[in-house]
Write a protein that binds this DNA or RNA. Structure first.
Length: 770
DNA sequence: GACCTGCTGCGGCATG
């Protein structure tokens, strides 16, 4: 096609004329680089494509402009299916797409739980145009409208997945992969997939997620955000210690550093739009309250708005609206939020992002910062705040190493080098496999075990595609033996039954599951344990904490020992534990990657002074380095701390948790504490522990996994069942599933082997320091 | 002491 219009790209010229006209009228002067690059592959080929760029950089248009052109070129009615993790995003996209599609005379169908049944009925009369849908609603279509869905999929041109990175590594992600795979099977032909994603550390892993087993042919279109200048400032704060004698056990003294941080935030944020991330809903409430008080005291209208998952839709929309309306000259607004504002909900540009304490991950920090500096010529601004306790004799190692501050600095350093955590999609995901097998039996009115295995796990490549490799399904890591064991377990629980011809059908319990709308979501509702002491309720604790009897936990500001776990009542009985400061490392929450811990170690071991630290943050870092050197942590990996021992592994959480469980298998009370493993010595000594640790270097990962699965310690951890239908697994499958998903045994073994190699040289004491 | 996400079909009744 000729490119004769000045200032226009040849790619633009390839869009349907009606789309070109719309863009001219909208005042578009040029296409973004990713949009330009996406047009060819999506228009000409059935290749899969990943478009990776920062939030709201026009990724959706990059996918839809060529995809809609394809629709317009077809004489038959055709369909684009767009899958989104959020209802709010579907509503946003509907608003943006509907105006364009009206011009093109193509219907756009928003589809999720809040959309009325009448709209949905109209769609089925003539399924064409653009369908914007959640994975859960798609699952419901497979269950309830198998026949009609097959017709719609036969017309489907392309599958678009938004916020791909938000799916990777979760049950919901595995469900999505299964839905893409089943859609293709139902359509009877290959359906091209387009993933829209934030830039991830390793895009080939995202490609592997989008098209398992065939990642090499996925086209990667990555637009790294550069150009915008980045300004960083990290401020440190010290929380004074209240003297021990002045505090009764139930006193709940308000810390003073949040007030200081809020005062500074008020000074620098008022008058502009910003985002503040304090990491938890409780802290969101705390800072919102403090900042609103500042507005009142200053006699100005409120500029600070909360946003998190426990707030109602209406309250959250108020906040989103306050941020958006700034564009039209309304008063400034700053949202204090959790990661609810990390995904692509449209809130306009913000001036500055404030991070209080370490971020959960480097990837998340990068996502958050991507909201700032979006207007040409404006810098992206990150303001970090960290508070630490003043040190005294009772301070724990985490405080003395200043890990909160060190973690945030390490995250910033890694972000500046361009690194972030790669997605970690490993795991059997047997809970989600249960859902998909059941859903498949309903979709097809019964399915043979072999068919189900071939579709969901691994099957022969159809004739004509004889490259020797089997087709990899979404549950490719599940072996035939594990699948058979799973079917037997489901049969025993009447989730599945087999008719005389061998056809698998829902059993009595399975019928109940699939006939309730709660079946469609792959992830479980948040469950909480009541935490009780002598009949008194202390509060609630999320179930996704690995708990076992005798474990020490920190709760309501005190240290407790778990006495009993009552699964039926969802209650934990604890008794007060005497002893000094709680021996707990404090992270940003969530699971931490090994690279972050290594960066923290490099920071502690080194002398470099990042230019973005204020004087107090520099002093705090210096204290951490002082502790690191006094403990000789460059060489020592085993450090006494009162009656306990810290094993400094500097591994990721998956490996630390594996190591802790392996040591528990040898009779030690061991827990992952972030940077390593905390072990209580009890009657034994540190040399015995060092010997046990080093002996762990011998086992193969396979040996260790089965040993671990058999060990009574794993059975003692009564809440291995963390995924929605884990309760239907027998103990062996449950342990396999848990190990596959949450433990890195090989890294733990390697560390133990290295510790032994190092010790055989110089450290006869096993590296004991006090 | 993280955080987040999602949900059908149908019967019964009232209203236009």
């Amino acid at each position: 096609m000729p490119d004769d219009a000045p200032g226009e790209s040849s790619a633009f010229a390839r869009l349907d004329p009606r789309i070109q006209q719309f863009l001219w009228r909208e005042g578009w002067t040029e296409l973004r680089a990713a949009q330009e690059r996406a047009i060819g592959p999506i228009l000409d080929t059935d290749h899969d494509v990943i478009i990776a760029a920062a939030t709201a950089s026009g990724k959706t248009e990059a996918a839809f402009l060529p995809a809609l052109t394809r629709l317009l070129h077809s004489r038959e009615p055709r369909l684009i299916i767009y899958l989104s993790p959020l209802k709010a995003l579907i509503n946003d996209q509907f608003g943006r797409l509907d105006r364009l599609c009206e011009q093109l005379e193509l219907p756009v169908w928003p589809w999720h739980g809040d959309i009325s049944a009448s709209v949905k009925q109209r769609f089925w009369r003539n399924p064409h145009g653009v369908l914007l849908i959640t994975p859960e609603s798609m699952e419901a279509m497979f269950c309830n409208r198998g026949g009609a869905l097959a017709g719609a999929l036969a017309r489907t041109e392309i599958l678009v997945v938004d916020e791909l990175h938000a799916f990777i590594g979760s049950e919901r992600g595995r469900q999505l992969q299964s839905l893409l795979h089943r859609a293709q099977a139902l359509a009877g032909r290959r359906l091209p997939r387009v993933g829209l994603s934030a830039t991830l550390g390793d895009m080939t892993l995202a490609a592997e997620f989008l098209r398992p087993g065939e990642a090499v042919q996925v086209e990667l279109i990555e637009e790294r955000s550069h150009g915008a200048e980045l300004r960083v400032l990290v401020k440190g704060y010290l929380e004074p210690k209240v003297s021990a004698t002045a505090v009764g056990p139930d006193d709940d003294d308000e810390p003073i550093t949040p007030g200081q941080i809020a005062a500074h935030l008020f000074g620098v944020l008022r008058g502009s739009n910003n985002l503040v991330f304090p990491n938890s809903r409780r802290e969101v409430e705390r800072y919102t309250h403090l900042l609103r008080e500042h507005c009142q005291a200053a006699g100005i209208a409120n500029e600070f708005w909360p946003h998190h998952g426990s707030l109602s839709r209406e309250v959250r929309e108020d906040t989103e609206f306050a941020l958006k309306r700034r564009e039209s000259g309304a008063p400034a607004a700053t949202a204090i939020c959790t990661n609810t504002l990390e995904l692509g909900i449209d809130i306009g540009a913000v001036k500055c992002v404030a991070q209080i304490g370490p971020a959960p991950t480097v990837a998340s920090l990068r996502q958050r910062l991507g909201r700032s500096g979006r207007r040409a010529g404006e810098p992206a601004i990150l303001r970090g705040y960290v508070n630490e306790e003043a040190l005294d004799q009772r301070s724990g190692l985490a405080s003395r190493l200043r890990l909160r501050t060190v973690r945030l600095i390490a995250q910033i350093e890694l972000m500046l080098t361009g690194w972030c955590e790669p997605p970690a999609p490993r795991g059997l995901f047997l809970s989600t496999l249960i859902q998909q097998v059941l859903s498949l039996t309903v979709e097809r009115g019964g399915v043979l075990a072999g068919e189900a295995y071939a579709l969901l796990c691994r099957g022969e490549r159809p004739a004509g595609r004889a490259d020797g490799k089997p087709v990899e399904g979404p549950f490719g890591a599940v072996s035939p033996a594990v699948f058979a064991k799973l079917l037997r377990a489901l049969g025993a629980r009447e989730v599945l039954m087999q008719d005389p011809s061998g056809l698998l059908l829902p059993g009595r319990a399975g019928e109940r599951m699939v006939n309730h709308y709660s079946f469609y979501a792959a992830f479980a509702d948040q469950e909480e344990f009541r935490v009780e002491n002598a009949g008194r309720l202390l509060g609630t604790l999320p179930v996704d904490n690995l708990l076992r009897v005798d474990q020490r936990i920190l709760f309501a500001g005190r240290t407790w020992r778990v006495i009993a776990i009552e699964m039926e009542r969802k209650a934990i009985e604890v008794s007060a534990e005497k002893g000094g400061a709680p021996p707990r490392f404090d992270g940003g929450g969530g699971r931490s990657h090994r690279r972050v811990h290594q960066q923290m170690r490099e920071l502690l071991a080194g002398n470099a002074q990042p230019a973005y630290l204020d004087a107090d943050a520099r002093a705090i870092l210096a204290e951490g380095r002082d502790t690191y050197r006094r403990l000789d942590l460059d060489r020592q990996w085993l450090v006494r701390d009162g009656s306990a021992v810290h094993l400094f592994t500097w591994l990721g959480d998956d490996a630390n948790e594996a190591l802790a469980l392996l040591l528990a298998g040898r009779g030690w009370h061991a827990d992952n504490d972030g940077l390593g493993v905390l072990v209580e010595l009890g009657a034994r000594d540190a040399d015995a522990l060092a010997k046990d640790v080093m002996s762990l270097g011998d086992a193969t990962a396979g040996d260790m996994a089965s040993a671990l699965a058999q060990s009574k310690n794993l059975a003692q951890s009564k809440n291995l069942a963390r995924e929605k239908w884990d309760g239907l697994l027998d103990p062996e499958l449950l342990a396999d599933n848990f190990v596959s998903r949450f433990l890195d045994l090989e890294a733990a073994r390697q560390w133990a082997a290295e510790a032994r190699a190092a010790a055989s040289g110089s450290v006869s004491s096993g590296g004991v320091v006090q």
